[in-house]
Design a protein around this nucleic acid. Structure first.
Length: 824
RNA sequence: GCUCCAGUGGCGGAAUCGGUAGACGCGUUGGACUUAAAAUCCAAUCGGGUGAAUAGCCCGGUGCCAGUUCAAGUCUGGCCUGGAGCACCA
């Protein structure tokens, strides 16, 4: 065995052997229980970054650990390969997106293999290939048939930079999630998926997801935004019209002093008096011009214009004025708000500015407020509210709504903030939406037998201001599947999040050309047992995938309703305290790490310093330290390889049960197994590797001469260390195993078991406290009774001295651990 | 403003149930080996006090203030700070 560690040589060698022997192929049938470990698949942007390395290493270690524990593990990989960067690159370089994407996939695949990841590449899924997007289109058609996909004209988010519309979830702080430019509103006819039909169940089922972090679950709950309230209707005085209003505060109806409709409110023109017409139109035109950011800024002073008309409060008969103001949102509730300045801060600000009256209807009897300085928004008791005076405002919500229902001017209403998912994109590099438009028949879905609708090749990527797909001479022109007459194809493609909403299902049956997946296989492998990925998908991908799973369950395609049983959201990889990014110039290239230190060092380091969920600060010294540690392990094996001639199998028979090193090995097996099982605490796993390695060196240092039994103990320790390290240092341990005489692969050896009796120190340290402070530590036998422990503690000279002359109030004895003497 | 998460040495972080705070590593300092360096190995490394002492011993210490308890990094209440998400959602 070579005395020095040459990772590059070893790694290349084993990667080749594993690939040729099909070491990581997953059979669909097995006696073992299934385990599905999955990383979020990458966009093939060109090269792996350290975030990828961290993500895939975590999942790989989990997959290998579970495999060793006796599971039939599914651990696949694929490519989320549709999307704008490919198209932009094509425009810039004149290549086509497919070539660019294929080259990137080839390069990144090579990198993934260099990292020693245990993927079953036979199940690889690539969303931009026709054999995949055929089924994305097919699933769209099933959703369409079910009424879950529909087309409508709506105000949508438009990104000028990307030249396409965006889903609400893709607008971050009023800006495009991809290019960060300001998003505008446009009125366009677009395809939507009816995710709002599932709002309630998406919210409720979050409770089922005990294996998800609270942070992700609350983010989703906030996004869905369920609220309970009422619709109240107000009759307009000057016109024969009614304005419905959504409110969560029906208890404040007696405090209404005006009513606001959004500038885009559908009846606004009819509601405007002739005198106010020009002022209202000017205000609306101005609102249209503003960007979302300006309009939604909460620091902005609220503005508005009176419509010159009035409505009646059915509870009081009072007449109040109608206004339009852009703090009312057209898309939420009914687009109209009843304004109660006394009990809502926004209404209060607006009323102050325009001198509108403030009427107090809720009071805290202990400290009444006149609402002159600010709105009173806390709970209280109703006043100035007719028959409801004196009632607690929470109870009044129900009673007042009940009265409105009875009298025919209101109803109870549950409202969600979630909007339908806009999936049309005015871009080329996506799955074409499989519908055609016929002058006679209207919207007609493409026949399933004609799928896939292939992307045209005859396109000009140099066009500006429109989708390249519209330059094809062959694509748009088609015939109607229904009447056979001339028809136009839909030229929009699907949001790439459609493709990624079901890819985890496809891995169960990746080659199926008849169906998206076989029902039995998908039910066998899913749900995913452990999903690992970045927190940035907390809403987007994870919410869409949950929706898809529920919709496909309702379509009868599968039998489960949540796709991901356990979710690990890994932290970011930082360098010098900030996220690695090209613009900051603080990136670290994985290729360089592989070349200088090897993949095992990269894997070890990326897991070592922080728990997976926390951010990880990359440090060059840390990498160096891990490399040194692997060298230290290598030397330990190499310097003993000749000395110990072994033909071992795990587990070894143990002759020297009382040897300290044997105990330390059992302690390590127990600790490492528990740390992995308990939230994948790989950072402590790695410190235990180091502890065991240090212990073996120490033990060896104390033996000047080794007898056969010593050699057996040493080899047991070394081999155990290798097996424990094998999920992380995949190449080094395999090479060492073979050099020591192993005939199989170390990765197919079962995980180690520990003996509970040996997984503890031979004697215990008794901590003796006086009044809760540690005063002495005594080595004692394990078997001592409570009384004996107490006696031992009291007899310690130090303790005797401390308690002399004091009354002993109480003595607490914690078996095998501690004695606390309480004195006065 | 609302919601969630976090706060422990110079740094990353450890600490199943409330029971020895600071594991393991990085860094730093000193030493061994060497002509020298690299590599490797050994030792020290929370703060304060008392010691000639880098020996003992004593005290304080896990963001702040209270509380529960024989015992609190851990539990409870109230704050402060940082991060993330949502945000004119009526």
């Amino acid at each position: 065995m070579k005395q020095s560690y040459f990772p590059q040589e070893i790694e290349k060698k084993w990667q080749k052997i594993w690939e040729e022997s099909g070491a990581f192929k997953t059979p669909d049938t097995s006696d073992k229980p299934k385990y599905y470990a999955l990383s979020m698949f990458p966009y093939p942007s060109g090269k792996l970054h350290m975030g990828h390395v961290r993500n895939y290493t975590i999942t790989d270690v989990i997959a290998r650990f579970k495999k060793a524990q006796g599971y039939n593990v599914l651990h696949p990989m694929g490519w989320d390969s549709f999307g704008l960067p490919a198209e932009n690159a094509a425009m810039k370089h004149g290549a086509d997106p497919e070539t660019w994407t294929d080259e990137n996939i080839a390069y990144m695949t090579k990198q993934l293999k260099m990292l020693g990841l245990s993927y079953d590449w036979d199940r690889e899924v690539t969303t931009c290939k026709p054999d995949y997007y055929k089924w994305t289109q097919w699933l769209f058609l099933q959703l369409y048939k079910k009424g879950l996909a529909y087309k409508k004209e709506a105000a949508v988010n438009w990104c000028e930079q990307c030249g396409t519309v965006l889903a609400n979830e893709q607008v971050i702080d009023g800006k495009c999630w991809r290019c960060d430019s300001v998003v505008e509103k446009k009125y366009l006819s677009q395809w939507f998926l009816k995710i709002t039909d599932y709002a309630d169940v998406l919210l409720e089922d979050l409770d089922k997801l005990s294996g998800w972090g609270d942070n992700v679950k609350t983010m989703q709950a906030n996004w869905i935004g369920k609220s309970h309230g009422a619709i109240l209707k107000f009759k307009v005085v000057e016109k024969d019209l009614e304005i419905p209003v959504y409110t969560t505060r029906p208890d404040t109806v007696y405090g209404i002093t005006y009513l606001v409709v959004a500038p885009e409110y559908k009846d606004i023109e009819a509601l405007t008096s002739p005198e106010q017409k020009s002022a209202v139109e000017a205000y609306r035109a101005n609102a249209r011009k503003m960007t979302e950011i300006e309009r939604l800024s909460t620091d902005r002073v609220k503005t508005g214009v009176a419509l010159g008309t009035h409505a009646i409060n059915p509870f009081t008969g009072e007449k109040f004025p109608l206004w339009t103001a852009d703090y009312a949102l057209a898309e939420y509730g009914t687009g109209a708000v009843m304004a109660v300045p006394a009990h809502d801060t926004r209404d209060f600000d607006f009323a102050k500015k325009y001198n509108l009256p403030v009427k107090v209807v809720i009071q805290n009897p202990e400290s009444p407020s006149d609402c002159k300085q600010e709105a009173y928004i806390d709970p209280g008791v109703l006043i100035n509210s007719g028959e409801f005076n004196g009632i607690n405002n929470e109870d009044a919500k129900k009673l007042i709504t009940e009265k409105a229902v009875k009298e025919g001017f209101g109803e109870f209403k549950t409202q969600y903030r979630l909007r339908d998912w806009l999936i049309s994109r005015q871009r080329y590099w996506g799955a074409p939406i499989p519908v055609v438009y016929c002058d006679k028949c209207g919207i007609v879905p493409v026949d399933e037998k004609d799928l896939p609708v292939l992307l045209p090749k005859d396109v000009d990527f140099s066009v500006v201001g429109k989708s390249p797909i519209t330059t094809s001479k062959t694509f748009a022109q088609t015939t109607c599947p229904h009447c056979g007459g001339p028809a136009r194809r839909e030229t929009d493609t699907m949001d790439t999040f459609m493709c990624s909403s079901w890819y985890y299902l496809r891995y169960s049956d990746a080659k199926n050309s008849e169906k998206p997946f076989d029902r039995n296989l998908v039910n066998k492998w899913l749900p995913v047992d452990q999903y690992v990925g970045g927190i940035e998908h907390a809403i987007l991908h994870l919410l869409y995938s949950r929706f898809f799973t529920k919709a496909l369950r309702d379509l009868g395609l599968l039998d489960f309703d949540e796709p991901f049983k356990n979710l690990l959201t890994q932290g970011m990889v930082l360098k010098d305290g900030s996220k690695m990014s090209k613009s900051k110039g603080n990136t670290v290239d994985p290729d360089e790490i592989f070349e200088n230190y090897g993949a095992d060092t990269a894997r070890l380091f990326i897991l070592s310093d922080s728990p997976p969920a926390r951010d990880f600060d990359w440090s060059d010294a840390g990498v160096e330290g891990c490399y040194k540690f692997l060298n230290r392990v290598w030397r330990l094996v190499a310097s003993n390889a000749e000395n110990i001639s072994l033909n071992f199998e795990l587990p070894l028979s143990l002759k020297k049960e009382n040897d300290d090193l044997v105990r330390l090995v059992h302690i390590a097996i127990k600790g490492i197994t528990n740390d992995i099982s308990n939230d994948f605490q790989f950072n402590t796993v790695i410190s235990k590797y180091r502890e065991l390695t240090n212990s073996i060196y120490d033990w060896q240092g104390k033996k000047s001469v080794m007898d056969d039994e010593d050699k057996a103990v040493l080899s047991f320790a070394i081999v155990s260390l290798l097996k424990l390290m094998s999920p992380v240092a995949v190449h080094l341990t395999e090479e060492a195993w073979h050099e020591l005489g192993g005939k199989t692969s170390i990765h197919s050896e079962p995980w180690l078991k520990w003996d509970e009796n040996l997984a503890k120190a031979s004697s215990i340290t008794l901590v003796v406290q006086v009044n809760g402070k540690v005063k002495d530590k005594l080595e004692v036998d394990e078997g001592l009774s409570e009384a004996e422990l107490k006696q031992t503690a009291m007899e310690s000279p130090k303790i005797k001295e401390l308690i002399a002359g004091h009354d002993i109030v109480k003595v607490i004895v914690v078996p095998k651990k501690l004695v606390n003497i309480v004195i006065k």
